[in-house]
């Protein structure tokens, strides 16, 4: 067998990691250093590997002159609301699939999961006329509702597999104690399911936050634009390409997700592995 502790193995693994790591982290590295370079340095033919004269002017410009704060707020509202909606829907749907036996349970679950198999762009083709007929085009509510397609199926499945592991005896004990079904769910099951709930919330928040396509298509007015299209249209349009500004703004736009993950990663890991290892 292949000896994982041998020197050759260590070298091979090290090189492989470096190779993968390069593709993962080089763009991030480039993002950070470009955002710190002055314009003169940024547009040199031969790029410098690190900023010679670091400057925060792009950050200052993005905050003071652009509409970044507005886009960020819009994104926070739409992503937050859709993540909340997805989490609540997935909680009840997942629990129902996991702990109740009724006709059509499995087909419904499969049907729901199958939504995940279509490209999101394809789904948009049918969502657009739906939103149009509901007069929800160019509204935040319309965007929030359509964001459900990103994360609801997987979120439901994640919570379903977690709830399936909640011991039936625990639920029986609460029933014997006199609790109603909803009461059991709210006072017993949800409190012991915080890690997967946080995971699902973060997961769906991230999907909506990173969205470009839906927001670009469904939102027309600049005042309702979310961060993705906002950045694209501000910094990299037909007339100008302000790379330094784009880099600084992108960095700030990804900050909320990074910070959320840093604080909640403990839950996230617990939540993801809960299904695999008891």
């Amino acid at each position: 067998m292949f000896d994982l502790s041998s020197t050759t193995a260590k070298v091979v693994f090290g090189l492989a990691l470096l190779f993968i790591g390069f593709f993962l982290f080089f763009p991030l590295y480039w993002l950070v250093i470009s955002s710190l370079k002055g314009n003169a340095e940024l547009y040199q033919i031969i790029p410098t590997p690190a900023p010679v004269m670091p400057t925060l002017e792009h950050f200052a410009n993005a905050i003071t002159r652009g509409k970044l704060p507005m886009y960020l707020t819009n994104s926070l509202i739409t992503s937050g609301a859709s993540a909340l909606l997805v989490t609540v829907l997935a909680l009840y749907a997942g629990y129902s699939f996991a702990k109740y036996r009724y006709f059509g349970r499995q087909p419904v679950m499969l049907f729901m999961l199958s939504a995940q198999m279509f490209p999101f762009g394809l789904l948009l083709i049918s969502i657009y006329p739906m939103m149009s007929s509901l007069n929800l085009l160019d509204t935040q509510l319309g965007l929030i509702l359509s964001y459900i397609v990103f994360a609801l199926p997987v979120s439901t499945y994640m919570l379903y597999s977690y709830f399936a592991q909640v011991p039936d005896e625990l639920i029986d004990a609460a029933r014997a104690d006199g609790a109603s079904d909803l009461r059991i769910f709210h006072t017993i099951v949800i409190p012991i399911s915080i890690p997967p709930i946080v995971t699902v919330f973060l997961y769906s928040f991230m999907w909506s936050w990173n969205d470009l396509l839906y927001s670009m298509t469904l939102i027309v007015s600049d005042s309702k634009r979310t961060i993705g299209p906002g950045l694209l249209l501000t910094y990299l349009n037909e007339v100008n390409s302000d790379w330094g500004g784009a880099m600084a703004a992108s960095l700030m736009a990804s900050a909320p997700i990074v910070i959320a993950f840093m604080f909640l990663q403990r839950f996230f890991i617990q939540g993801v592995t809960a299904g695999a290892v008891k």
């Binding site: 625990l170 004990a173 029933r175 014997a176 104690d177 006199g178």
Partner: peptide, 28 residues
């Protein structure tokens, strides 16, 4: 169940993990 005046002790104890011992006992 609750109206039958019956209490059951389960094999796995089925204690509510997020509640204190006192809250577990007082839940019903």
């Amino acid at each position: 169940p609750a109206k039958r005046g019956i209490a059951m002790v389960f094999q796995s104890y089925a204690l509510y993990p997020h509640m204190s011992v006192g809250d577990n006992m007082g839940y019903a």
